[in-house]
């Protein structure tokens, strides 16, 4: 068969035109937000497997293993109760069931606190995985948030038992805890995404996080009744202090589980504020993380 010499149709094209002609994309380009989200959704099995792997790795070498998921919140609440409930008595005269009041605050805050602390290391602690394989990096902070959800479930079970043991009645209002926790999960995921990119860019943030969380805790009416605010602060300062998202989540939890306590504001307003904060931090954190997607492998 005769061989005809065919001139390569691509000769004479610049590299850029050649790339466009054959549909090649620039390496390391940022996908659109929708593309990225779809890609992330297709990786949901990896996110679940990674979260499971993290939990196994963290508890694997301890003797008590899974029991620690329940013991840790119990000991935490116990220490705070002894100091603030029995010794200093910050709740005396204002809150009857100060144990339950305090524990609700400690556990809800603890959920966000552990997500933020683990989230700051989500990127920097997994450099090997990031540099080796291509996957949407948002999988890592979201997996970390999922790990903390497991711990949170254990602590909520402990919280519900404390509520029953201290005499709070079991009402249908208790079902409201589910939407509150769901909102907090989304809020925490957004926060984890935000903190992980920040921690990857500026390593110093990791040093600051324990102190930021400490100050945040002091401002969230956990160790003292929320009426302290209205007594000491007025006007726009009161509004700022009461706009604290964690205070709102804690108040909603107390509202659903406890009877006869004064809240920071009417429950309707609290719900609206909770939803607004969740959307703001959830979507804002996700977009902030997505915009940094190209740079995570650099370290």
């Amino acid at each position: 068969m005769a061989q005809t010499a065919v001139v390569d149709a691509d000769t004479g094209l610049s590299h850029q035109e050649l790339a466009r002609r054959h549909g090649l994309t620039a390496a390391g380009r940022l996908p659109s937000l929708l593309e990225y989200s779809r890609h992330l959704w297709s990786y949901r099995h990896f996110i679940a497997a990674f979260a499971n792997a993290k939990v196994t790795a963290s508890l694997g070498s301890t003797r008590l293993g899974v029991v620690w998921q329940v013991l840790t919140p119990l000991i935490n609440a116990g220490v705070y109760y002894v100091i603030f409930g029995l010794l200093i008595k910050t709740g005396s005269g204002r809150i009857e069931n100060f144990v339950a009041y305090l524990c609700a605050g400690v556990f809800i805050f603890g959920f966000t606190q552990s997500v933020v602390q683990a989230g700051a290391q989500a990127i920097t602690g997994n450099m090997g995985l990031i540099r080796a394989l291509h996957f949407p990096r948002a999988s890592l902070p979201i997996a970390i948030a999922l790990v903390e959800v497991r711990n949170m479930v254990a602590s909520i079970v402990v919280l519900l038992s404390i509520m029953l043991l201290t005499g709070e009645p079991l009402t249908f209002q208790w079902l409201m805890i589910f939407p509150v926790l769901l909102l907090q999960i989304i809020f925490n995921a957004g926060l984890a995404l935000f903190v992980s990119r920040l921690g990857a860019k500026v390593h110093d943030i990791r040093q600051l996080i324990p102190y930021i969380m400490r100050i945040w805790m002091y401002g969230s009416a956990i160790l003292y009744p929320v009426s302290f605010f209205a007594e000491r602060v007025h006007g726009w300062q009161l509004a700022v202090v009461e706009a604290n998202p964690l205070l709102i989540f804690i108040e909603l939890t107390r509202h659903s589980l406890m009877e006869g306590i004064t809240l920071a504001g009417p429950p309707g307003r609290l719900w609206i504020e909770a939803v607004i904060w969740t959307l703001l931090v959830g979507i804002g954190g996700y977009v902030y993380f997505w915009r940094g997607e190209k740079g995570y492998g650099r370290g």
């Binding site: 090649l24 540099r131 080796a132 291509h134 190209k294």
Partner: peptide, 24 residues
């Protein structure tokens, strides 16, 4: 796609190239 290329030049690739390093 793990390191950025400076402006003025570019690297184009089909799909997502996979790096198979010993450091994985």
């Amino acid at each position: 796609g793990l390191l950025p290329v400076e402006r003025g030049g570019a690297i184009y690739a089909a799909g997502q190239p996979s790096l198979l390093g010993v450091n994985a």
